[in-house]
Amino acid sequence: MDSSAPDFSQLADQEFHYWQELAYDDPNKRPKANTITARKQRINRLKTHFGSTPIDAISTFDVARYYDTLTSTHEYQKIRGILTSVFQYARTRGLFPDHLVNPGQAAQLKRVAKPTSRKAMEPAQYRAIYHEAPEWLQIAMDLILQTALRQQDIWALRWDQIRDNGLFVIPQKSQTQRRNQQRQSHLCFELDKNHSLTAILNRAAGVKRELEEHYQQAKSCPFIVMRTDIQRIKHSANKNSPFQINRTLAAHALKKARDRAMENTNFFNGLTREQLPAFHGIRKLSLQLMRKAGADDQYLQAIAAHTDFKLTEESYLTPNTTSWQKLGHYDIKLP
């Protein structure tokens, strides 16, 4: 061990600067703002733990013990990637001996991560969270309840998807399914048969008109669900509109509303943090209520299906070959 070796904090800062500014030949491919912020937060936690320890004094054992303190597989993967990169950066600068293994890469998580066991959201829990949620989140929750769409599809819903008395949606599909060339799903929610969905869309239209009175940018926003916490609205490079909602913002908003609901009610008693219902729990609740209302397996399969093209691509590239599955027979009411 070289006593003159720089400490972990110094090298972590240097690696972060290199990763953010110098590692990409094309400036357009550099990390987005949210990615930079998340990585910086993780590096700060690592600096708090390893601090002034010389880089070559940190062993695989030390890193493995740190990994064991992490609470999720996702966080472990992110932290492991950062630590591996810091030690690799130190090696390329001649500050970490070649004969030593990379501790970030060599160490593994001791425990076997348990799969997330989130529960379906109960009607009482839905109402409690809904009561604490901002208006845009209430609209989103109601849309999921009536359509059983995944949250990424809710944030992508646009006003031009409403036509011919229907809401036309092609749910987004994962990259794996896209590679497998699975059959696309085309959903048409018939608004004359689903009065609750129509009422939700009318409420969203009212929110849009209200925002347009104060913000010129709101007039060009194409999304049905628009954020309404005006003081915090700002534009970012990865948004099509400053009023657009992404999954991170939505997850934080739902968690805040759920935490307030937990303080004010006993509907969540007995649930661990991993079991607390999230957005997917609303989708489960929706499908369960549809089945209770009489929906058959074919209907449920259609409404829960995946796809691999966005609505605009499908509508304009092959409009004459698309067979839309009409969905509007089950107007969901909470018991």
Results as ranks from 00 to 15, higher is better:
L300Y: 07
E314Y: 01
N320F: 13
Q216S: 05
R179Q: 13
R93G: 07
Q88Y: 06
D98G: 10
K32D: 12
R39I: 04
K173S: 08
W19E: 05
R30I: 06
I162G: 01
Y126E: 04
H131R: 15
D296I: 15
S196H: 05
P54A: 11
A278M: 06
F61D: 13
G294E: 08
K239R: 15
P97Y: 10
Q298F: 15
T69P: 05
G294W: 03
D7A: 05
K47G: 10
A156N: 03
S220Y: 08
I303M: 05
A304S: 12
R283A: 06
V112F: 11
T147E: 01
Q77Y: 15
R203M: 12
Q231N: 12
Q177N: 10
D2M: 13
Q41V: 15
L187N: 01
A261E: 04
N266G: 13
Q161S: 02
A12K: 08
E122I: 02
K29Y: 05
K310C: 08
D259G: 08
K29E: 14
D13M: 10
L197M: 09
N238A: 07
Y67G: 09
R118W: 02
N28K: 15
T265I: 09
A293E: 14
L249K: 09
D308R: 09
Y67M: 02
N194A: 00
A5N: 06
L137S: 14
R203K: 15
K284T: 00
F189K: 00
I282Q: 02
I144F: 00
Q172M: 05
K292A: 14
I55S: 02
E15Y: 15
E212A: 05
A302V: 11
D98R: 12
T37G: 09
F16S: 03
Q175P: 07
A140C: 03
S117H: 10
I162K: 00
W324T: 01
L211P: 03
R178C: 07
Q20I: 12
W324Y: 05
K47D: 06
D7F: 12
A57P: 03
M226D: 02
R232K: 12
F309I: 03
Y24G: 07
Y66L: 03
D26H: 13
A12T: 11
D62K: 04
T176R: 08
H214Q: 14
T35V: 11
A23S: 14
R209M: 04
L143C: 15
N44P: 00
H214T: 14
K333M: 08
F309P: 00
E274G: 04
P123F: 06
T198I: 00
K284D: 04
I55G: 02
S9L: 09
A23C: 13
Q88V: 11
F243L: 12
H186S: 06
D297N: 10
Q288A: 09
T60E: 02
R227H: 05
Q181R: 13
R80F: 02
T92R: 06
I129A: 05
S315R: 07
W136D: 04
R80D: 02
F16R: 11
P242Y: 01
D68C: 08
P277Q: 14
R93S: 12
Y66F: 10
D62T: 05
A204E: 01
Y66A: 03
I139G: 00
G328R: 05
I233V: 13
H214F: 10
M1N: 15
Q325K: 10
M226K: 03
H74C: 09
L249Y: 07
L145W: 00
K193Y: 03
I36D: 12
K333I: 07
G270A: 07
I200W: 01
M141L: 08
P31Y: 06
D297Q: 14
I36M: 10
